[in-house]
Design a binder for these strands. Sequence first.
DNA 1: CCAGCTTGGTAAAACGGTTTCTCAGATGCG
DNA 2: CGCATCTGAGAAACCGTTTTACCAAGCTGG
Lengths: 337, 337
Amino acid sequence: MAGRRANQVRIYDVAKVAGVSIATASKALNDTGRMADATRERVKQAAADLGFRPNAMARALISQRSFTIGLLTNDTYGRFTLPVMAGVSEALVDEGVSVFLCTIEDDPALGKVHVDAMLSKQVDGIIASGKRIDRRLPVDLSNLPVPVLYAFTDGPEEAVTLVSDDAQGSREAVEWLVGLGRRRIVHVTGPDTFASVQERAGAFRSVVGTAGRVLFGSWSEAWGHEAVGQLWNEGGDAPDAIFCGNDQIARGVVDALRERGIVVPGEVSVVGFDNWELMAAATRPPLTTVDMNLKELGREAGRLILALAEGAPVEPGIRKLPCQLVIRQSCGGGLRG
Amino acid sequence: MAGRRANQVRIYDVAKVAGVSIATASKALNDTGRMADATRERVKQAAADLGFRPNAMARALISQRSFTIGLLTNDTYGRFTLPVMAGVSEALVDEGVSVFLCTIEDDPALGKVHVDAMLSKQVDGIIASGKRIDRRLPVDLSNLPVPVLYAFTDGPEEAVTLVSDDAQGSREAVEWLVGLGRRRIVHVTGPDTFASVQERAGAFRSVVGTAGRVLFGSWSEAWGHEAVGQLWNEGGDAPDAIFCGNDQIARGVVDALRERGIVVPGEVSVVGFDNWELMAAATRPPLTTVDMNLKELGREAGRLILALAEGAPVEPGIRKLPCQLVIRQSCGGGLRG
DNA sequence: CCAGCTTGGTAAAACGGTTTCTCAGATGCG
DNA sequence: CGCATCTGAGAAACCGTTTTACCAAGCTGG
């Protein structure tokens, strides 16, 4: 038991090699305190020679800062969480902060275990993230001794919450279609129980008028397929553009149109949502789609949780981060501008 | 600075409430030492009442065990890493071990920063993971003071490496096709520079004979599409089954066949590889495909890194974990039995 | 020539636990 | 009743670092 790790160098060793006390060594390495420049250099050189790496645990014990944060998510598949995670990590790595990733699959017990573990390990803050912005994680994060931030998941009013601005993204998409001269635009989207579905549909109607047609269904390719069947079988003027609730639906729509011999984007323009690369790029033609900028959302989450951890005042409430329309070939129109 | 976190309960507080010394409190809570049962109970009750959560940092400082491991990956998209991660986490959460996730995108400098951060934080071990089993991470993990394990990525000979048994998975898939009566089986796969492509192709030939036809290409749907074009345009007996190198290729194949009016699985059986749910399930018909059991691989990785961290002897070398054929509808044959 | 500053450095007390050692008192035994 | 043994609990050392307090010289100025 115990017994130092094989080649673990302590500050004690650095001090001995440099011929100073550990107090001096500490100050030299942290650029604090007063001492002769020569001494400081000598200590730094010794530390470099020995490959000294300060024990973050010992440091954390004193400073009450572990330089560690926890990322909690119930998005097992990771399509939304991964970009967020990448952003968080990117924003924090320069500050020396590491991220614990905990996946809890809608299991409250598991959630509690992970939160307890994180708190035990003295995380400086927790970011809660999910796959739906209108659902909470199955775990109670109120009254924790550390700051909590909600990113792409629902949080209490008094908390800081980061979400993508779906309405703005949707407006941009629909306005793009209108700008291309499309007039008979239909919105084919997911289940109307999702807040994001409501928000995107609302934005859609705000552009095309309240009579704008919206078809609710599921998030699947199959639904996109089926919707095209409905729309084209009912007679009357067929749509000349379809704004889809996500890329899977869009892919189903594009495939169904092709099967019917309808040319995309020649006769019908299609826009997706999510910019899920593997889906959007593999569709023929590649999808023009709305990117929620989740990585940037993650970066912002990282910056904010750090500010909170340092005790900086952060205005609570919901912050909507802008989406961006990514132009590919499913609408025509070429480069934007 | 410093100043204890708001409602942070120390063992000191527990001891005071229970009316004992902190030494006794510690022993009571850890079920060590000797003391009256009544005392032990009293301490435990006090700890529960106060919501005492031992400071893992302080504990780690003494025990030289942080109950933390690092997971390093260059799989930004996460398709392979996420299941591995989920498995690792699942295997370790019961032992109180948390996981640092570090994504390094083929950037050696970033890799070094993350490894240094992990070592500083005294991780008990590091699992290296990737998206290719024949490529190393762009970071040197030799001579580290902690054990390193390679999961789904290439590692040095003297290390413990976990990979999926692609050959076994491929054999099962091809034997399944043979069992269904298919005789003109073709293998459409990715770039021949991938070790996994070689291994799968080798296994394919070991079942159908060395004359078995293999078409190398890219990992894309487009390639699956194109391959069908090649195969059906060249005249002669068309294939009655296609074993694909991954699910994306398989999807391209199935789509191309449908466009040609060829019935899957009636006329041609198709098998994929990866069991990438969202792809396999959205294909029409849903893909029969080989699952690499990456979550189980992750669980095994978790168990092994823990054993290594505890100093248990673990035989070095490559361990191949079995794949599993997942039967859906793209081959016919119904339930396996 | 000495009080008062700087300068360059050290000793020691934290941080929050675990573990070893010690010890007082209760008990068993002859 | 005296001595060895056992029991339950506490004091103190320790893990590796930071930080505060302190001190011995060397210098300045009157």
